[in-house]
Design a protein around this nucleic acid. Structure first.
Lengths: 201, 201
DNA sequence: TTGCTATGTAAGCACTTACTTACATTTACA
DNA sequence: TGTAAATGTAAGTAAGTGCTTACATAGCAA
């Protein structure tokens, strides 16, 4: 007999794939069933209705920020290298979860609450983790008196839009050398700014 | 007799509204016709098919960066104030064109080329305008030797994501005081960075 | 063997969608 | 006044869509 859990997973995987390509309305239950190698009826027996399928995808593929476990390993590094490691990790996570991010962007107007919940669990929480790291730097006297939560959010937002622009809008994969280049330039500007030192502006 | 141009505009306006709320597939031609106060048939007589309606919306509501005409007026201001003016103007433009931005985000996977064209004409070109301004600052010795195109893109991307996060994801309007606050903090970090001056990192 | 669970096949229902056809009405203008 | 352009009303079509019902089958467990 077929393993119901494995069947369920294949359905969710197919749903993720198709909704990320065609949107919630564009992905039909028939097509999802085909892609999963399953009868359409099986979908309705397991999930009841299409909307529930969507909710289960959002629950199942929400990615927990994998930043927390990175922090200890970089805590003793020089600041630029530590920030670069964080940036690279963040971009890599987005790349891994590309299909999920695509869904979030497409459906943020149509299903705001469900999508917002999925979003909060990820990018917002990464902001807090980064803020914590910056706070430790500041207490060591390494950072100026700037609002750290804002600084952290800025840092991550640049990377998010970089990812979005390249991989989702232009369908062009970010190579690891491009990632290193962008992150390097970001860290430089983030740490020292663009202005000549001591200039009054 | 009815003015065909005015009718056409009402249809496009209704299309913009409904597609921005429900997505391309979710916005039906019947509903668009109702919202425009027009017979459904009139839509097909004027545009032939739904897809063409969508294309016309993208053409019609593409917003030209209103950054160019701002530049001359701020060229002589102190750098922080000039950048703040640019940031505020950019955020305001995004707010004005909110419905259009919503469509771009929702449909960037389903209609990549059409949306990418609309996108290029706006945000990318703003990047170039800002890069030009920064280059003039740099030639006056006010900016360090950083890649200016990258710096400009970073600056705008932070604002774009700020807008997206507040107004589109969280459906919460950015007040002008919030805008000034975010832009102020952004300019401070953008100009001077977060790191203590002279610190080795 | 028997029965239960997970799935399949087939047919179809009620509804919606983009789009069409045929005919009528209004109104500016020559 | 007459004509043509711009729109409307009405009815409908073909192709989906989510979802259901009825019945069959394969395999594990008692």
């Amino acid at each position: 007999m077929a393993d119901p859990l494995e069947t369920r997973e294949r359905i969710l995987e197919a749903t993720l794939e198709l909704i990320s390509e065609k949107g919630y309305l564009g992905a039909t239950t028939r097509e999802i069933a085909n892609q999963a190698g399953v009868s359409e009826l099986t979908i309705f027996r397991k999930f009841g209705k299409k909307e529930r399928l969507f909710e289960e995808v959002l629950k199942n593929y929400t990615f927990l920020p994998r930043l927390k476990d990175l922090i200890p390993t970089i805590e003793e590094l020089p600041v630029p290298e530590a920030l670069e490691a964080i940036g690279i990790r963040f971009l890599s996570t987005l790349k891994e979860r590309k299909r999920f991010v695509r869904i979030m962007l497409s459906e943020m107007n149509t299903y705001p609450e469900k999508v917002r919940n999925a979003y909060s669990q990820t990018i917002e929480e990464m902001g807090q983790t980064l803020t914590g790291y910056l706070a430790r730097l500041q207490s060591k006297g390494l950072l100026r008196d700037v609002p750290l939560d804002m600084a952290a959010i800025f840092f991550l937002r640049i990377l998010f839009t970089t990812f979005m622009n390249a991989e989702i809008l232009n369908q062009k994969e970010l190579s690891s050398s491009e990632m290193r280049s962008v992150v390097g330039q970001l860290v430089a500007i983030f740490l020292h700014g663009v202005m000549t030192e001591g200039a009054a502006g």
